[in-house]
Amino acid sequence: MAIDEKLIEKVLLEREVADFLYREADLLDERRYDEWLDLLADDYHYSVPLRLNVRYDDVAERENTRACEVQWFDEDKSTVELRVAQLATGVHWAEEPVSRVSHLVTNVRLDRVELPEVEVSCRFLVYRNRVADETDFLVGRRRDTLRRTEDGWRVVKRHLLLDQSVLMAKNLSIFV
């Protein structure tokens, strides 16, 4: 049987991308925020729309708030850097004492390959536990645009669909 070079190439790329995402999750969960920031491209953009309860025929138009509307997050790297700086003050009470966080990243799939950029879709489950009994599960879909650079992969765009309408966690003081 002939070796399907293209398929092997795709599998290897998928594996490489997944490894990158897992490593990134480790950096976050190990609170190595400065190293994590290095993985975000300078033109990084992060968006997490609100999810609304709407009629089936309104879903396309209304289910998720749009780029010009209110979202949980809609920001670039400079704001993410401010969030990291806030964590490092030691008086960011929402994260004092610090949370225990695990990012589970699954269903990783390459949706578009136009090197040096790829578009990856995945599911996330972010578990947070803090103080004694405070426990949150944030679950949903994620679409990332990654860019291959001389220094490795960088996250260019991250769009999250969090599967909650009313946020059941009291805050979003961790990086989802």
Partner: peptide, 24 residues
């Protein structure tokens, strides 16, 4: 809009710390 989102609500850098106080 961007300022509002980074300031207020559960993801807002200011309001996050309020909730910690009210809850505990």
């Amino acid at each position: 809009r961007h300022y509002y989102m980074r300031y207020g609500g559960p993801a807002g850098m200011t309001e996050q710390d309020d909730m910690e106080n009210w809850d505990y």
